[in-house]
């Protein structure tokens, strides 16, 4: 079961901090992050990749994006 980080309504750097915190907990190999700006989408992608995660899928959801990331290289 993937962990979910809901960062909608928050502006950067908050979504990145929440993503990094979830990654650092080390309990999830799969995380879903919900954001609602292009900036957050780009920055969460960078945050995930810098920690050895791979962005699997980015889908538009409502006004924002649903980003799913998994630990390790694709």
């Amino acid at each position: 079961m993937a962990a979910t980080v809901d960062a909608r309504g928050l502006s950067c750097p908050q979504p990145v901090i929440m993503t990094l915190d979830e990654i650092k907990k080390g309990q999830s190999n799969e995380i879903i992050i919900l954001v609602d700006t292009d900036t957050s989408k780009e920055n969460v992608t960078r945050a995930a990749e810098s920690q050895g995660f791979t962005v699997d899928k980015v889908t538009s959801e409502g006004e924002g994006y649903r980003i799913s990331i998994t630990r390790g290289q694709a």
């Binding site: 502006s11 990094l20 700006t37 900036t39 780009e42 920055n43 969460v44 960078r46 810098s50």
Partner: peptide, 12 residues
């Protein structure tokens, strides 16, 4: 910091 995603909206 840029590689970790601390890029301000203005840059995009």
């Amino acid at each position: 910091f840029a590689s970790m995603g601390f890029v301000p909206a203005g840059a995009y």
